[in-house]
């Protein structure tokens, strides 16, 4: 049947790129914090630098991230309402406390780590892991509870966000560890450098595993969308073949998923640090694309 919408007044989409960047930064922070703590708890000496890189990146990313949130408010000066007028049913209420506690914990953790007080650092690190996971998991809940939007309203969303956080956090750690290995290693003994190299390549393998798990979750999500209701179908077509296909299929899936996985697992490239570095840079771009696709494409289906 020929149907034409003659007149309608759709509203501007409420959440834009700043929110996607905010999700990206909390993901980076949570991922690198978890890896830092694993490195510190693992206790092996060669992991130490990793622990320190993560301990710096995590709080820095999480101090910048809420700035995007506050700037995005229509009434930025009223941000304190979040701590005074709480609605226990809203995921943003939990988020405002997590976004306060988690960076404070992260800063104290980094402080003890750099002072060399390993025991205290380990305790704070262990406390911080659930905080980090909740801080990023809650952002998944924000979207999952937005029930009007077909792309968001899935129970998979918090898990997908946590896994993609691990991917981007790990990617950033590899990038920084490689830069340190390449440019800040004057005067270090060659065996230490060889150890660092092995460490970077080993991290690359874990990154590859996380990327594959991420792709698996996205695949599940898309398959269910494709057999679901009208709006779910529409949004699946929008990201697979429509306006968002270059960003979703091209950047997120192909550049940020399949190619990095191949680079770290194919025997031809898997023994070279430069390919591991390239794979990590690509995942960083891929996860940023994922955040933008989820936030913007999720709101691009008309609701009336």
């Amino acid at each position: 049947m020929d149907i034409q919408v003659v007149y309608n007044t759709p509203h501007e989409i409420p959440l834009g790129v700043p929110i996607a960047v905010y999700f990206y930064l909390t993901g980076l922070s949570a991922g690198s914090f978890v890896i830092s703590v694993i490195a510190v708890l693992g206790g092996r000496k060669e992991y130490k630098p990793l622990g320190r890189i993560g301990a710096i990146v995590a709080p820095v990313a999480l101090i910048v991230a809420p700035a995007f949130l506050i700037v995005d408010l229509e009434q930025p000066m009223r941000f304190w309402h979040l701590f005074v007028f709480m609605n226990p049913q809203s995921p943003i209420t939990y988020g405002s406390f997590l976004l306060t506690l988690y960076p404070i914990n992260g800063i104290i953790y980094a402080w003890f780590l750099f002072r060399g007080e390993q025991a205290l650092a380990k305790i704070l690190g262990l406390l911080g892991i659930p905080l980090a996971i909740c801080t990023h998991g809650y952002t998944g809940f924000i979207l999952a509870l937005g029930k009007g939007r077909a792309l968001w309203s899935t129970a998979l969303m918090p898990t997908l966000f946590i896994v993609s956080a691990m991917v981007s956090g790990m990617g950033l750690m590899i990038v920084l560890a490689t830069l340190r290995w390449k440019y800040f290693s004057k005067g270090r003994p060659p065996e230490a450098l060889a150890q660092d190299r092995q460490l970077i390549l080993g991290l690359g393998k874990i990154l590859g595993g996380c990327v594959l798990f991420d792709l698996f979750l996205i695949g599940n999500d898309i398959l269910v969308l494709l057999t679901s209701k009208t709006e779910e179908l529409a949004v699946a077509h929008l990201i697979l073949t429509g306006r968002f296909a270059p960003l979703f299929v091209g950047v997120e899936i192909f550049l940020g998923g399949i190619i990095p996985a191949l680079l770290v697992f194919l025997p031809v490239t898997s023994r070279r640090v430069r390919y591991c570095f390239l794979a990590s840079c690509l995942t960083l771009v891929g996860i940023l694309a994922m955040r933008i696709v989820v936030v913007i494409a999720g709101q691009s289906i008309p609701l009336h």
């Binding site: 409420p14 949130l69 995005d72 408010l73 229509e74 309402h81 937005g146 009007g148």
Partner: peptide
Amino acid sequence: HRCIGCKYCMASCPYDVRHINPIRKIV
């Protein structure tokens, strides 16, 4: 007086009936 303009309500509403008042900067 309490709305902070986070727009989460607008993003959640299945009917897209809420709007930002461009002058008063609230939903």
